[in-house]
Computed example of a mutant assay.
Amino acid sequence: MVGTRQLNVSAGDETPCTEDQFLGSALKITQPKDGFRAGSDAVLLGAAVDAKAGETLLDVGAGVGTAGLCALHRIPDCQLWGIELQPELAALARLNAEKNGFAEQTSIIEADIGMRASFAGEVGPKKKPFLEAGFDHVFTNPPFYGKGRARVAKSDIKTLAHIEGSVALPEWLLFCVARAKSKGTVTVIHRADRLGDILAVLQKGCGRLKVIPLWPAQDQSAKRVIVQGIKGDKGPLELTRGLVLHEKDGRPTAVANTIAREGAALKSVM
């Protein structure tokens, strides 16, 4: 994220928003001033999507669309679908796709992944019913905290984005695996202390799993991990060397800066 300016734009009629610049000002993202706010996790998730031109992408829990739009900025001619539960965030995701020039490539679905009926009438690639379609790449930044594991925020938007609701992490990830086509990728960014839970689910449907630690600084333990697997593959798990995000003085490392400001793919800098 580069900069922020106040806007006279609202998510619905009551939520004030700001416009934030990502990828060296290449993307301008409108998001709520308070509550849920996309940042470096969304950029890193978008950078981890290992897609080719013309492939289909699905962002589960899309928020205001930041991760998917970061991926579209880097990879030409892809089609992006996003699923978002909260109407305010879904509306902002559509707005962000439009003002960044990706409206024709983007479909934002307002639905609850725990309720199949909420996808009635929605379509995916090749105009198939959404829950019967397969995507080349599925990626997600699930709520980070289980029920009772974090304080409820003043903002309902932030609470729903950060604390698991009716869909716990295992069910969330199973939904993601189910949406990927055979040999498609599933990519997750989450807290490092949930790695065991993530692997327990993804290993059931994916192989050739890569675990990418994200260290805040060289002398600190990883706080985040990216896990990526290939649906239906039988290859072994790989623990990669990971990514250090900040120097000792707090400045972004050169590698992190290349992702955050230039929109580089994660695999190109590792």
Score class of each variant (00 low, 15 high):
Ala178His: 14
Gly263Arg: 08
Thr56Lys: 04
Arg37Met: 05
Lys267Met: 12
Asp156Phe: 10
Gln86Trp: 04
Ser107Ile: 06
Ala265Arg: 15
Pro170Ile: 08
Lys234Met: 13
Pro129Ile: 03
Leu243Thr: 08
Pro32Asn: 14
Asn100Trp: 09
Gly146Asp: 11
Gln105His: 14
Val177Gln: 12
Asp193Leu: 01
Ile198Trp: 04
Ala117Tyr: 11
Val211Ala: 01
Asp219Thr: 13
Ala111Gly: 00
Met270Trp: 15
Gly101Ile: 10
Lys99Ser: 09
Thr185Cys: 05
Asp249His: 13
Asn141Thr: 01
Ile109Pro: 01
Asp249Glu: 11
Asn96Asp: 10
Leu174Val: 12
Leu243Asn: 06
Phe139Met: 05
Ala42Thr: 03
Val167Ser: 04
Gly134Cys: 02
Leu131Val: 03
Thr66Lys: 10
Phe135Trp: 06
Gly68Ser: 02
Ile157Val: 12
His73Gly: 06
Val244Ile: 14
Arg116Val: 00
Val255Asn: 06
Val49Ala: 07
Ala254Leu: 14
Val227Ser: 07
Gly39Ile: 02
Glu19Tyr: 10
Glu14Gly: 08
Leu169Gly: 08
Asp20Gln: 11
Ser182Tyr: 12
Glu238Arg: 15
Pro129Arg: 10
Arg179Gly: 09
Thr4Glu: 15
Lys154Ala: 11
Thr187Val: 00
Gly82Lys: 03
Val225Trp: 12
Thr258Ser: 11
Leu57Cys: 00
Glu19Ser: 10
Ala97Arg: 11
Ser107Glu: 10
Glu262Pro: 05
Ile113Asp: 04
Asp249Tyr: 13
Val60Pro: 01
Thr140Lys: 04
Gly39Asn: 09
Gly229Val: 07
